[in-house]
């Protein structure tokens, strides 16, 4: 009923040639395709041409006042997905009730919205974005020779998630920045890289690697890996921006048994137990 009434009001508006921008109302009920095509969606008119204009004006005024992104960064990033987005620049004459003055520019931008150049996003704002859980492996797989290096490696890569950031659609890109192992024997190790298998490193087995660890005692150990992700975000159609700090994401823990080389050979000889670990 409400939509019917709205349709009639707009049609009368057309007949009388009244063209004033209707007040922006909260988006609510569905707007039928016929309404969209005729321009009868009451909440749709006069509120949409802001994004590109506001963005560039905001950044320009920001860098002009000291600080802010270098001009080159904006120009490059704006071409990536919405090349036609800036085509509206200069055509917007709608006076928005949310207009704020950022001398010497007039910027149609609500504080705290994506076009606000002083908006600060922190890791705690990323609650809607779950990075992929990293995984780790080791070799020999599941067992450890006391006194010889055991090689650990992680599988984690940069990836992008979509979702709502501060109420606006955004993408967040997670990039592995550091890897921290707790080897379960009371020692820890860190690496800027995730490491790789001996084969991938073209090293003989039981070689030392950047991510290897040598156990000195027998026993069962639980090896924990934490990957520190750095993060960047971008609101739809805007350039990537950094977020301070890192996000620690634990990987799958591995349980492994450490023994001497002789124990391993006698107890788990491959000819007798071909499916044993390492065979």
């Amino acid at each position: 009923m409400i939509r019917q009434a709205a349709l009639i009001v707009v049609l009368i508006g057309i007949i009388l040639s009244i063209g004033g921008p209707p007040a922006a109302s909260a988006a609510g009920g569905d707007c039928s395709r016929a309404d969209v095509q005729m321009g009868s969606c009451p909440e749709a008119n006069g509120v949409f041409d802001h994004g590109g204009v506001d963005l560039s004006a905001g950044f320009d005024s920001n860098s002009g006042g000291g600080g802010g992104a270098p001009p080159g960064a904006d120009g490059g990033a704006q071409t990536d997905e919405n090349p036609d987005q800036n085509g509206d620049q200069g055509t917007v004459t709608v006076v928005d009730p949310l207009v704020i003055v950022r001398d010497p520019f007039f910027v149609n931008c609500a504080p705290g919205s994506p076009c606000d150049p002083s908006l600060v996003v922190s890791m705690s704002d990323l609650v809607n974005f779950q990075p992929v859980i990293p995984t780790q492996g080791m070799e020999p797989n599941g067992w450890i020779v006391i006194g010889l290096p055991t090689n650990f490696f992680a599988a984690a890569s940069a990836h992008t998630r979509s979702g709502l950031l501060l109420g606006f659609p955004a993408e967040v890109r997670f990039t592995p920045a550091g890897y921290r192992w707790a080897y379960g024997d009371g020692t820890t190790g860190g690496s800027a890289t995730g490491g790789a298998s001996w084969a991938d490193l073209h090293l003989p087995e039981f070689s030392e690697t950047a991510t290897s660890h040598t156990y000195l005692d027998a026993g069962d150990f639980v090896i924990a890996l934490t990957v520190d992700y750095s993060a960047q975000y971008r609101f739809a159609g805007q350039p990537w921006r950094g977020i301070g700090g890192t996000l620690a994401v634990p990987a799958n823990p591995i349980t492994a048994r450490a023994g001497t080389a002789r124990t391993v050979l006698v107890d788990r000889e491959c000819t007798r137990n071909p499916s044993g670990p390492g065979c």
Binding site: T135, E205, P253, G278
Partner: peptide, 14 residues
């Protein structure tokens, strides 16, 4: 050991 385990292809298991 090396002979026993010719090619432990490191599957990121677990």
């Amino acid at each position: 050991l090396a002979a026993c385990a010719p090619a432990p292809t490191p599957v990121p298991g677990h």
